[in-house]
């Protein structure tokens, strides 16, 4: 059992959850993840660590509500217990002095990339941040990033920013205007893919933190397998950080849809059966 210290919605669909996990805090490093279960029956959800606090003995994750289990997770409140919180899992992100590093993120990835950007800054790099959001009201932690970034860019289709392009176009502009040694990208698979494709012709090292379907998170089940270069790798134990230019993206896109119909069935069942029955029961 782990206790929820805080859970709040940052922006539409994106929630932040702070969990008391003193043992995990002692060991976690940027780029690693934990696995949570919102209740005994739900799925195991792998979530990147977005922050941690040694004094409070707590870890923080940022997640997107995108299915039954994350729906359940988003309904938890401070003081609630969750049955499973394991970690830290996966290899930490590579942190050293690269020179100038661009962190390009969107969606839940804005939270997930934060500890990496912070560590890179501490390691003496010049850190630039590029955040993608459909609209101004979807951007969060702007102040945190501005504090650790030398430059902060936004790509959006919102008239608010006077910019109407998706991240790769803005990324190319940034790369043109600045000498960048390394790009790190976290966000939805399509965002990471487009960022990798944008840097490929320029031969800039690009690392992505992948999010395949995962079950146990310790290399046993192989659900998170993906092709990187010539070899098959497991995102849980070999990653989640991989060279974006070597990833077999088509396979990853394909595998992510494996359980799409079942995921929908599960969500519909929860919304149309479990929830109403619970409401009826509460009345009676």
């Amino acid at each position: 059992m782990a206790k929820i210290i805080d859970r709040k919605r940052l922006v539409p669909n994106i929630h932040m959850i702070e969990i008391s996990a003193p043992d995990i805090v002692k060991r976690c490093k940027p780029g690693q993840f934990v696995i949570l279960m919102p209740d005994e029956k739900g799925e195991r959800i792998p979530l990147s660590l977005a922050d941690w606090d040694e004094k409070r003995g707590s870890i923080t994750c940022v997640f997107m509500v995108v299915g039954t289990s994350t729906q359940k997770l988003s309904r938890l409140r401070s003081g609630d217990d969750i049955p499973v919180c394991v970690g830290p899992l996966g290899k930490p992100a590579e942190i050293s002095k690269f020179g100038t590093v661009l962190c390009a993120a969107g969606c839940y990835g804005i939270g997930a990339i934060y500890p990496i950007a912070r560590a890179l800054k501490q390691a003496g790099n010049t850190v630039m941040t590029l955040v993608d959001a459909k609209a101004n009201y979807l951007i969060y932690w702007e102040d945190r990033f501005k504090e650790i970034s030398d430059k902060y860019f936004v790509s959006s289709r919102d008239g608010f920013f006077d910019c109407k392009d998706y991240i790769p176009k803005v990324l190319k502009d940034v790369l043109k205007d600045n000498k960048i040694d390394r790009v790190i990208s976290i966000g939805c698979t399509y965002l990471m893919y487009t960022c990798s494709e944008a840097t490929r012709p320029l031969n800039i090292d690009t690392y992505v933190h992948l999010n395949p379907i995962m079950v146990d998170g310790t290399g046993m089940c192989g659900a998170c397998r993906l092709k990187v270069g010539d070899s098959t790798q497991f995102a849980c134990v070999d990653g989640p950080e991989f060279d974006g230019h070597l990833v077999d993206w088509n396979e990853l896109f394909y595998r992510r849809k494996s359980y799409f119909n079942d995921e929908i069935r599960s969500l519909c069942y929860w919304e149309r059966e479990e929830k109403p029955r619970k409401m009826t029961k509460e009345k009676r």
Binding site: N13, V65, V66, Q71, S74, A135, T189, F253, K257, L267
Partner: peptide, 13 residues
């Protein structure tokens, strides 16, 4: 490519 995230809670696009 983003078909699977149609299951979100709030619609922002």
């Amino acid at each position: 490519h983003k078909a699977t995230i149609r299951k979100v809670d709030e619609v922002t696009g």
